[in-house]
Design a protein around this nucleic acid. Sequence first.
DNA 1: TAATTTAAACGACATTATGTTGATTTAGCA
DNA 2: TGCTAAATCAACATAATGTCGTTTAAATTA
Lengths: 209, 209
Amino acid sequence: MPKDKAVDPRVKRSRRYLQEALVSLIEEKGFDSITVLDLTKRADLNRATFYLHFRDKYDLLEQSMDEMLEQLIHTLAPTGNPEATSFGYNKPFSSIVRLFEHIAEHATFYKVMLGQKGNLGFTSRMLKVLREAFYQRFSLIQSDEEQLLVPKEIVTRYQSAALLGLIMYWLENNMPYSPHYMATQLTRLSLLGPHHASGLSLLYPPDPE
Amino acid sequence: MPKDKAVDPRVKRSRRYLQEALVSLIEEKGFDSITVLDLTKRADLNRATFYLHFRDKYDLLEQSMDEMLEQLIHTLAPTGNPEATSFGYNKPFSSIVRLFEHIAEHATFYKVMLGQKGNLGFTSRMLKVLREAFYQRFSLIQSDEEQLLVPKEIVTRYQSAALLGLIMYWLENNMPYSPHYMATQLTRLSLLGPHHASGLSLLYPPDPE
DNA sequence: TAATTTAAACGACATTATGTTGATTTAGCA
DNA sequence: TGCTAAATCAACATAATGTCGTTTAAATTA
């Protein structure tokens, strides 16, 4: 046995209960009107127990967000698989497919956090994660900065915000399409542009690779 | 003189002070940790006066947002000017230019509300306004629903989120470009798609109109 | 299995923000 | 100038916060 097995199961249990209580209560009444008493009632714990684990409700929120974003970053990291980099009108970027799969796996959390009663802090931090992923990928494909018609910074801002918009739409409507379908739409929009993302535009398609 | 001049100047003054106090305090400490006492101190009013005008701080926020979004909707409404509908790589949509001008005019408000310490409610309501504007415009240009490679709903979600992303970027960086420049970038991204928004892609440009 | 450790429960406390009320002062209006 | 209503002021009950000391219960270790 390696090192840190020293985590009291009672601690893990209490923390998990509180994190679950947080998500369900945000969904019900929004983060602002949640009290510590609400959380501990829902988690079936004493109010004092809360303060053994978290400084206040903001601390609980922070830690919950951090844990999920950690996973998100891991999901977006390059696989090192070379054939995963090819794509086309019907073959989406594999990392985008993985992204939608990750969201689906934690749909409850993301739907609440990105929804109407959700949290702007989470939204903007997630946006930053997506932006940096696009920025890195962009740097690999397009190294000649001077050749750009639109600045790199603006392109990546545009892409990451659009992606988050699609994710929100997908969650709001309870994921009516598969991750692969969503990633395909995104790839088409990226290659053709929203203005020509119709059948008509296929008369003069840009080279997919 | 027509009808409603019946607004006590003291009322207008108090409400304005409180709205200004709200924006500056959100910028400083975030909405959550603002108290009614904070607001009235900043506005140089008695705490009881606050309750003469607003139910609580959420009510104050609501009303401030509503007033600004009202103006935004008005800005986006079609002008009826026929020559304003033409556009190209260097000729942006005129309504988008007007949109950026409106944001610039109220930059303090938008920067705070859409920023890190801002408000998700405002963000999602603004997104909805933009989305509906895109949706309407889309319906005029593209009536044949079946011809679409990507569903209309998805295209408009994509566009509106991307636009809001660019607005946020622009505000965060204290508006380094002109409204016309920003609208031009957006138009290029819309016509070419983010993936080909580089000089290279001009070898096979899609027809701008 | 018994002993030890530590998390969780419980009751209590001072502090702070909330929303409301009644009485008084002050500013706008006719 | 006198009337009306807004703004001020002091006070109140209520509710949430964060902290403490003590007791109970669960997990780990000898």
